[in-house]
Design a protein around this nucleic acid. Sequence first.
DNA 1: CACTTGACCTGTCCGC
DNA 2: TGCGGACAGGTCAAGT
Length: 289
Amino acid sequence: MPELPEVETVRIGLNQLLPGKKIDNVWSDWVKSFPNAKSDVAQFLIGAKIIQAQRRAKLLLISLSSNYSLVIHLKMTGQLVFRGKQNFGGGHPSNSLVGSLPDKSTRVILSFKDGGKLFFNDQRKFGWMRLLPSAEVPNIDFMKKLGPEPLGAGFSKAQFQQRVQRRPNSAIKAVLLDQTVIAGIGNIYADESLWGSKIHPATAVNKLSSQKLGVLFKAIQEVLNLSIELGGSSDRNYVDAEGKKGSYLKFAKVFRLQGQPCPRCGTPIIKIRVAGRGTHICPKDQRLI
DNA sequence: CACTTGACCTGTCCGC
DNA sequence: TGCGGACAGGTCAAGT
């Protein structure tokens, strides 16, 4: 997915739509999408009220009045779309990627007592949701391993440099994608922030000066903040909690823009492979050192 | 160890 | 039009 700005946009939308709603049913036809749906833990879901939606890294955390929480990872193609009572047809014709719901990629449906429904759609079935006691959520292995939030108040340039430098021989892009170093950056924002700081994605961390890493730190924050303002990036699948697309990709400088001129120098952008991922760079501004 | 590859899935696009 | 292969925004596990 959905990287940090997209998950944050979904969180904001869910927080406007869901708190106070009482869950009265759950449906799922793909076990891996929601393994708890039919287990005895479901008793902490049915009848519970939604408290609020929070985010950690690319994970959504929806707390319930039962002291359980839904932990959700959208992975590559997950969507969480809310529709109010009797409003399951297509909406937002000009900027929506979803039509009437459920559709063939719907994996889970939460129904609310007031008639609204939350649809978890996931074309590729990589995403998942789990129901866990709220107090245990911070202790789950993958939560404990996550690095700091790049937009967190306490996250400083010095801390960024220090964490990145724990992997001195790795390509900087691989390190940005490592969720245990910094949490929330994915392929789009890695490419965009490396272009913004004129760093070749395959550059080993130990070749980058502290000053250069400082420039990258600022670029990451700028790119993430801009994307959140614009409602995230929509390519094929991403939508917000109302099914609407985000517009960040219209402002992207390199991502998926191979062949187009670099906005800074006009050199055609190229697509290469770094850390096993498709990677977009300006070959003139981003030289390998 | 650290880094790379394959697996998890479905859909789309591109070349033949 | 059909078919095969590559590729897609993420993350693990397994392999080198």
